[in-house]
């Protein structure tokens, strides 16, 4: 196995000095007998986060606003808005007006947002009743449903997605069934519905579990009280149970929406290049084209988008109550 341990010398020096400083600081703070100095325990983590989270983010910003020579420019964003911008610069101003605006990038963004929206909506519609069943204490079904949702999560998500391939392929199981019944073969893979299916299948648990936790944390006497006060079971559901589970719903929406905007594996495998999503675009900008500046601009846009949507959701759930992970 090739463990290519090839860090530059200054990286080791940095690590050594950092470790030494930390040990000295801790010893000092313990000697002085001040409980407050325990805050120093966070210093290695702070250093680590500055190095590996803050600095990389700054780098993305740096690359997004510079060209390949390191000069400040907005060109990367102009290229996002108009993918023909480069061509226009080459042919000069007189011909530029005859070239239409290239909308590939914007279209991809809109398409991914639309797909992610569909995925979130369908997951919510299917997932909420499932969570209700799971949280229902009278139902024997609940526990087995939980297992049904948890078990696939143990599998690597790439393998989960690939497993769908063997079902949906032209010679896959579903098509073989269709042929056996005497129906014509159907083109099931390499289109948007297949990608959507893969996304829902992979991200549905992220919707179900936050809702499930917030439902099962609910005080059962509340819905009993509602029933005692004359609510029908439907009214209890719409007036008591659902409003109380909203934090879970919101956290579920975030946890499904975010990965589905950015996924690039699922459209690659199930969409087979016919469907381009935003994550896909970013990945190919970086690794296929080697265009770090353009890719950084796209990443920056995506981060902005997600921050905006998160802050909207935060407003709806100010205490972050629904952040129940599995």
């Amino acid at each position: 196995m090739r463990y290519d341990v090839t860090l530059p010398w200054w990286a080791y020096t940095l690590m050594g000095v950092g470790g030494l400083c930390f040990v000295v600081l801790v010893i000092l703070s313990i000697r002085r007998n001040h409980g407050i100095k325990r805050s120093l325990f966070a210093s290695p983590y702070t250093l680590w986060m500055i190095l590996f989270t803050v600095l990389p983010c700054i780098l993305i910003g740096y690359y997004a606003f510079t060209d390949t020579d390191g000069n400040f420019t907005f060109a990367n964003f102009r290229h996002f808005w108009d993918s023909n911008a480069e061509m226009k610069e080459i042919v000069g101003e007189e011909f530029a007006s005859s070239i239409p605006r290239g909308t590939v990038n914007v279209d991809t963004l809109v398409y991914s947002l639309w797909m992610a929206f569909l995925c979130t909506a369908i997951s919510l519609v299917l997932g909420y009743p499932a969570a209700l069943f799971m949280a229902d204490r009278d139902m024997k079904l609940g526990a087995s449903l939980v297992i049904l949702f948890v078990v696939p999560m143990w599998m690597n998500f790439l393998l989960r997605t690939i497993a769908w391939m063997s079902l949906l392929e032209d010679n896959g199981l579903i098509n073989q069934l269709l042929v056996a019944v005497g129906l014509p073969r159907a083109q099931l893979m390499y289109n948007s519905p297949a990608v959507l299916l893969g996304m829902i299948y992979n991200y549905m648990p992220f919707m179900v579990f936050p809702i499930y936790t917030s439902l099962s944390k609910q005080d059962i006497s509340l819905s009993e009280a509602a029933a005692d006060l004359g609510c029908s079971s439907f009214q209890t559901l719409t007036r008591v149970t659902i409003p109380l589970s909203l934090p879970g719903v919101i956290s579920g929406i975030t946890m499904v929406f975010m990965p589905s905007v950015t996924t690039f594996f699922i459209p690659r495998v199930l969409g087979g290049g016919n469907t381009m999503m935003f994550g896909d675009l970013i990945e190919s900008k970086f690794l296929t084209e080697g265009n770090w500046n353009g890719g950084s601009a796209l990443s920056l846009l995506m981060m902005l988008l997600i921050l905006i949507s998160l802050s909207i959701l935060r407003k709806a759930d100010p205490n972050g109550e629904g952040s129940g992970r599995i």
């Binding site: 990389p56 993305i60 990965p259 890719g295 990443s299 995506m302 997600i306």
Partner: peptide, 13 residues
Amino acid sequence: TMPDIVTGISLML
């Protein structure tokens, strides 16, 4: 809150 792909790319950069 950052998507995986941004984490990966920022570290790669």
